Amino acid sequence: MLDVLAADSDQGRVYRALTTRGRLSPELLVRDTGLAAAEVAKALVELAELDLVVEDSGLWEAAPPERAVSAALRSEEARRRELWRAGAELDRLYHQAQRGAGWTRHVEPVGHPARLITLTTRLQERAVEQVRWLDRPPYRSTPQNFRAQEEIQSRRMAAGVRYRTVYSQNVYDDPGLFTAMTRMAELGEHVRLLAELPVKLTIGDDEIALLVPEPDRTGLEGALVVHSSGLLNALCGLFETLWTLALPVAAERKQDQLSDRDRSIITLMAAGATDEAIARRLDLSRRTVVRRIAALLDQLGATTRFQAGVQAAKRGLL
C-alpha cells in the first residue's frame, strides 16, 4: 500500500503522473514515467485493485490523493496491530508451555547463560539453510564473543547459510554490536530494524530455537531450547511476521547517501523513536533533531516520518 506514496516506485510514478496530468493512455504513461509498457500495465492493475485508478475508454484517471493517504494510514495501523497481536500470541504460547500443556517434551531449560552461547554456536554449525534472529537487549557480549560470532557467521554464510536478523533500535546504543552488525551486513547478512522486539530468539532452519522469553525481567536466565513442535512453528511464524513489519537497512552505500548522522536519525525515526529518544541516543539537541527531520522529509519528498523511512530504504540510503 505504501508503494503508491513512494515517488520512485512504479506505482508511485504512475499515480503521480495521473494526479498531475489528468486522464492518460498507457502509452502516454510510458512516456511520462520512463517505465516499460509492461511495468506501467502491472502498476495500473495493482492501483486498480486498490481502487486508486479507474479506466474509461482506454484512458486512466487517478482517484483523489486523500484516498491513497487514508489507505496508507490504515495499512500502517494494521501493521502495528499485527505486531502487537504477534507479541500477545507468543506470550500466550509461552505461558502454555510453562504450564506443561502438552509442550514439555519439546521444551527444555538452558540452565546457565554460558550454555546459551554454546548452544547458539551449535545451532549455527548445524543449520543447513538459514539462521533467523531476533536480537534485542540486554546485550551481554564481550569483544571476544563478538569476534567469535563474526567468525562462525562469516564461515556459515560462505557455506551458503542465509542469515536474517531483526535488531531492536537499541543496537545504536551498543557501539560494539552496531559495528558487528554493519560488518555482517556488508558480508551478506539480511538486516532489518524494529523499535521494539518482544523476545530474544534464534532459530536454526525449522528444527530448533533458542528463546529468551523475558529478557527485561530475568536477563538470559530462563532461556529455553525449543525442539520441533507446534511451539517452534509459532516462533517461526512470529519471526516472519516481525520480519515483514521491520524496516530494511541496506549495507550498500550509494553515492547520494545520507550522512552517518542522518542515516541514524531517519532509521530511528522510521522505527518509531520520538525526537527526544533520537536526541538522547545520538547525543544531539532536540532542536537539531527536529531541524534535521524536517530537512530529511523535504529531501525525500515525504509527508510522514514512516514514509520517509520507506523512501530512504527503497533508495538504498539506509
Rank of each mutant, 00 (worst) to 15 (best):
Q11F: 00
R13T: 03
V14P: 01
A17S: 14
T20H: 00
L28T: 11
L28M: 12
A43L: 05
A43K: 02
L44E: 01
A48I: 02
D51H: 13
V54H: 09
E55K: 05
G58T: 11
A62Q: 03
P65V: 13
E66Q: 13
S70P: 00
A71K: 09
L73Q: 15
E76F: 06
E77P: 00
A78D: 15
R80H: 12
R85N: 09
G87D: 12
A88L: 14
D91S: 15
A97F: 01
A101S: 09
G102R: 10
G111R: 05
G111Y: 10
T120A: 15
P137L: 07
S141Y: 13
F146P: 00
Q149V: 12
Q153I: 14
S154D: 14
R155E: 11
M157V: 04
V166M: 04
N170W: 06
G176S: 08
A180I: 06
M181V: 00
R183G: 12
E196D: 15
I203T: 02
G204K: 02
L210H: 07
L210I: 07
V212P: 08
P213F: 11
R217W: 10
T218K: 03
L224T: 08
V226K: 11
G230D: 15
A234S: 13
C236F: 00
E240C: 04
T241E: 12
V249D: 06
A250T: 11
S259A: 12
D262Y: 10
T267S: 15
E276F: 04
A277M: 06
R281C: 08
S285T: 15
V290L: 05
A294G: 12
A295M: 11
L297Y: 03
L297W: 03
T304V: 05
Q307K: 01
A313R: 02
L318P: 02
